[in-house]
Simulated assay, not measured.
Amino acid sequence: MKKIAIFASGSGSNAQNIIEYFNGNRNVIVDSLWSNNENAYALIRAERLGVETFTFSRDEFYHSIDILDELTDRKIDMIVLAGFLWLVPRYLTEEFPIINIHPALLPKYGGKGMYGHFVHEAVVKNKEKSSGITIHYVNEKYDEGNIIFQANCDVEKSDTPDDVAQKIHLLEHEHFPRVIEEVLYQGQD
């Protein structure tokens, strides 16, 4: 059985989608959800679906290995970032495969501060004809890990950032859990 730990900072709709996708799967389990925001709605979503939750401070994340120790004790196979906004420290990227979903077609609109609505606003402002999602490995730099998967959608001239966000959200929910499952089992027959 493969075990996933999800890291989330906000509302957690992608986290919920992932948990529901793997619910009842005999080969993959969402073991836990971790948040740097004790008020993140992702924590409530996870608890309602029977997933254990943890919160941590900036100091714990960057200046201690307590999180690493707990993830190791829980025999986590992969960390999935689902709306997690902090840069992941090297001690985690060296120990676990970590994947993230970004609401744009990287390398465009990536980097520090480019998340959520900020991305969609930039896409509309720059009159892009398309946008999309990028699922990628995480390294020590924002949005620079190797790309695993991309899917795109059209951006109409009349689209607002909220319109683009809705299109991106549909792509995230359609593809993210499936790609996680594929990455977990790459090279295994």
Score class of each variant (00 low, 15 high):
residue 10 G to I: 00
residue 11 S to G: 11
residue 13 S to L: 09
residue 14 N to T: 13
residue 14 N to F: 12
residue 15 A to I: 14
residue 20 E to F: 10
residue 20 E to P: 11
residue 21 Y to P: 14
residue 22 F to C: 13
residue 25 N to H: 05
residue 26 R to M: 08
residue 26 R to D: 08
residue 27 N to F: 06
residue 29 I to W: 06
residue 29 I to A: 09
residue 30 V to T: 12
residue 30 V to K: 14
residue 30 V to C: 15
residue 32 S to H: 07
residue 34 W to A: 08
residue 34 W to N: 09
residue 36 N to T: 08
residue 36 N to Y: 10
residue 38 E to M: 08
residue 40 A to M: 09
residue 40 A to F: 04
residue 41 Y to M: 15
residue 41 Y to R: 14
residue 41 Y to V: 11
residue 41 Y to H: 04
residue 42 A to Y: 03
residue 42 A to R: 14
residue 42 A to F: 01
residue 44 I to M: 06
residue 44 I to P: 04
residue 45 R to S: 04
residue 46 A to K: 00
residue 46 A to T: 07
residue 47 E to M: 14
residue 47 E to Q: 09
residue 49 L to N: 09
residue 50 G to F: 08
residue 50 G to N: 14
residue 51 V to G: 11
residue 53 T to H: 05
residue 53 T to R: 02
residue 53 T to V: 10
residue 54 F to L: 09
residue 55 T to N: 05
residue 55 T to R: 11
residue 56 F to G: 05
residue 57 S to Q: 04
residue 58 R to V: 07
residue 58 R to C: 03
residue 58 R to D: 05
residue 61 F to G: 01
residue 62 Y to R: 10
residue 67 I to V: 05
residue 67 I to R: 07
residue 68 L to K: 08
residue 71 L to F: 11
residue 72 T to E: 12
residue 72 T to R: 09
residue 72 T to Q: 13
residue 74 R to D: 12
residue 76 I to N: 02
residue 79 I to G: 00
residue 80 V to A: 02
residue 81 L to M: 07
residue 82 A to V: 15
residue 83 G to S: 14
residue 84 F to I: 11
residue 85 L to W: 02
residue 86 W to K: 12
residue 86 W to N: 10
residue 89 P to W: 02
residue 91 Y to K: 08
residue 94 E to W: 07
residue 94 E to D: 10
residue 95 E to Y: 13
residue 95 E to P: 05
residue 96 F to R: 02
residue 96 F to C: 01
residue 96 F to N: 05
residue 96 F to W: 06
residue 97 P to F: 10
residue 99 I to P: 00
residue 99 I to S: 01
residue 99 I to Y: 01
residue 99 I to A: 03
residue 100 N to C: 05
residue 101 I to Y: 07
residue 101 I to W: 07
residue 102 H to C: 06
residue 103 P to E: 02
residue 103 P to C: 04
residue 104 A to Q: 01
residue 104 A to T: 01
residue 108 K to G: 05
residue 109 Y to I: 15
residue 109 Y to C: 11
residue 111 G to P: 07
residue 114 M to L: 09
residue 114 M to D: 05
residue 114 M to P: 10
residue 116 G to L: 02
residue 117 H to K: 04
residue 117 H to V: 13
residue 117 H to M: 13
residue 119 V to K: 00
residue 120 H to N: 03
residue 120 H to K: 01
residue 122 A to C: 07
residue 125 K to V: 00
residue 126 N to Y: 03
residue 127 K to E: 12
residue 127 K to C: 03
residue 127 K to F: 02
residue 128 E to H: 06
residue 129 K to D: 05
residue 129 K to R: 03
residue 129 K to N: 12
residue 134 T to A: 08
residue 137 Y to F: 12
residue 137 Y to E: 03
residue 138 V to A: 02
residue 139 N to V: 15
residue 140 E to R: 06
residue 142 Y to R: 03
residue 143 D to V: 04
residue 143 D to G: 05
residue 143 D to H: 09
residue 145 G to A: 01
residue 145 G to N: 00
residue 146 N to P: 06
residue 148 I to W: 03
residue 149 F to W: 14
residue 149 F to P: 12
residue 149 F to E: 10
residue 150 Q to S: 01
residue 150 Q to C: 07
residue 152 N to A: 05
residue 153 C to Q: 07
residue 155 V to M: 11
residue 155 V to R: 00
residue 155 V to K: 00
